[in-house]
């Protein structure tokens, strides 16, 4: 069964791309087929997945918008035959403004018959609530929020939950929150422990376990354009286990009934 997950946060720098490629790596390790769609004009996921020279990007797909056209922009990644990518580029920023009321549905349309070929489809969103994020929310089954244990990031998570709430009542009635991933946690910092506890109190049903610890291996593996799961260090093994549990949580979230996010969101606001 295929599941499409939008990885988002309305704050930049919390590690959306890191979580996206981490999940792609977990799927790669399990020999599952995965398609990563880089919706961020910064193209960090594209770079990290070691994509070979290619002709088309998501910008071309969204400009075209025909049903199923996304299949023509899919390229294999450097990670292996079961990890594919729809790459991004700088010009994707042109697609971040709404051109017509239905422009938020262009990605969903272009993925018709494409997403079903993969076990997991990951949408790496930009850090804003523009048309690219709306397209991702319209195309996804689940929305995964990434945050880090800091005040600004918590506000970003709150805003992302509101965005999901709005999207699930307008552009995508089937959209559900998969949960909140707390990334880059340093357990020895009191501030981080406080913020994680704060998150658990605000969204008791949505915080996914385990939290992702901050480890140098993540940056090292990204720099080498390999999955962190293939990086030989104790830190990488710790991250590997965390993403392994996370992908299990995602897949189980897809199969369980809808989680009510609305009361928690309102309590915290």
């Amino acid at each position: 069964m295929s599941v499409t997950v939008a990885v988002l946060s309305l704050k930049g720098g919390v590690g959306k791309s890191s979580v996206t490629v981490g999940l792609a790596g977990a799927a790669w390790q399990r020999d599952r087929s995965v398609l990563v769609i880089d919706c961020d004009p910064q193209a960090n996921s594209t770079l990290c997945l070691d994509v070979p020279p290619h002709t088309f990007t998501l910008s071309d797909v969204l400009a075209d918008g025909r049903p199923g056209i996304a299949s023509e922009a899919i390229v294999p990644s450097g990670w292996g035959p079961r990890v594919h990518v729809i790459p991004s580029e700088e010009a994707l920023a042109h697609r971040d403004t709404a051109t017509m009321p239905s422009s938020a549905a262009r990605l969903r349309l272009s993925l018709t018959g494409v997403a079903d070929r993969y076990d997991l489809v990951l949408l790496d969103c930009p850090p804003s609530l523009g048309e690219l994020t709306r397209n991702a929310l319209a195309a996804a089954d689940l929305a995964l929020i990434v945050t880090e244990p800091g005040f600004f990031a918590l506000r970003g998570a709150q805003q992302a939950l509101r965005a999901i709430e709005v999207a699930s009542t307008s552009i995508n009635l089937g959209l559900r929150p998969a949960g909140i991933v707390v990334n880059r946690v340093r357990a020895n910092l009191t501030e981080h422990t406080y913020r994680v506890d704060e998150l658990r109190q605000a969204y008791p049903n949505l915080i996914l376990d385990p939290v992702i610890p901050e480890r140098t291996a993540v940056q090292q593996a990204q720099g080498a354009c390999v999955p962190v799961q293939a990086w030989p260090s104790p830190g990488a093994r710790e991250i590997t286990e965390a993403f392994d549990d996370l992908i299990d949580a995602l897949l189980s979230a897809h199969s369980r009934p809808q989680t009510a996010i609305i009361p928690a969101t309102r309590e915290h606001s």
């Binding site: 002709t55 088309f56 071309d60 797909v61 969204l62 075209d64 056209i69 700088e90 042109h94």
Partner: peptide, 10 residues
């Protein structure tokens, strides 16, 4: 699929 008309516009 063809390249977007604004693909080369910064």
């Amino acid at each position: 699929l063809s390249r977007a008309a604004d693909a080369d516009v910064h």
